[in-house]
Amino acid sequence: MSAETPSDDAISPACASPAPSPTKGSRASPVAAGAPASPILSIERLSAAYDGSLPVLEDVSLELARGELVAVLGANGAGKSTLLRTLSGLLPCLAGRIIFEGVDITRLAPDRRVVRGLVQVPEGRQMLAALTVEENLLLGGYVHRRDPAGLRRTLDEVFALFPRLSERRTQAAGLLSGGEQQMVALGRAMMGRPRALLLDEPSFGLAPKVVSDTFRVIDGLRSSGLPILLIEQNASKALAVADRAVVLRAGRVVARGTAAELAASEEVRRSYLGD
């Protein structure tokens, strides 16, 4: 665990000092230094807004390289989930582009993005509550429905990864515990054989032990070479598994760097624990 124990004054209201220093912002560019040449997902100057309101996301740029895990951190309302909604196509972009594997997917419908291999695990797990665990998982492989044998294989792999789900395959997914639902959500995404994974707040509403288990799985996925964009409010957990991270505040990127750099920076704590 790389996160240091926060000191007392971290939460004190006295730290309500002015916004991030510009120097920190400019230091953030070395992003590309560690990243391989062609990113699998690149987000270029993205802006988004809900119907008619002011932009919730402004001018956000971000790259996800192959085999890399990038964490997006920030407090509630910073625009993290909005970012993910635009990436998955549930929210239209006002400006900017999203390039996935060299293809501009900015205007693509949500289901077409999944077909291309950009798969999302939504916040709150979003079980299809009345369907069984197995049906939930199978539907995760909807885009590969023409390949039943391959699907069966992937299903077995998922069950091997989460033996618990195998025991509960005929149960309605809505009746599972939070941790089991998280497994279904992750397994369901794996069924789509993603080429990149978008994870939205995997720790949402889960008990600490389950959060740790979930992050172990995420770490495993990263080690297997799957590129992951992780949206998370639990900063130290996220930074422990991430290669790089960005911090969002009020819809803008206010800091970026390697996980180690950000773990040591004040910026993260300030974002979470006060102005």
Binding site: S12, N76, L206, A207, P208, G274
Partner: peptide, 19 residues
């Protein structure tokens, strides 16, 4: 409230809920 500076400044007492 999530804004800690705000919370710490204004509250007489605080309740913390988790899970």
């Amino acid at each position: 409230e999530h804004d800690m500076a705000f919370v710490m400044d204004i509250s007489d007492r605080i309740l913390v809920l988790d899970f």
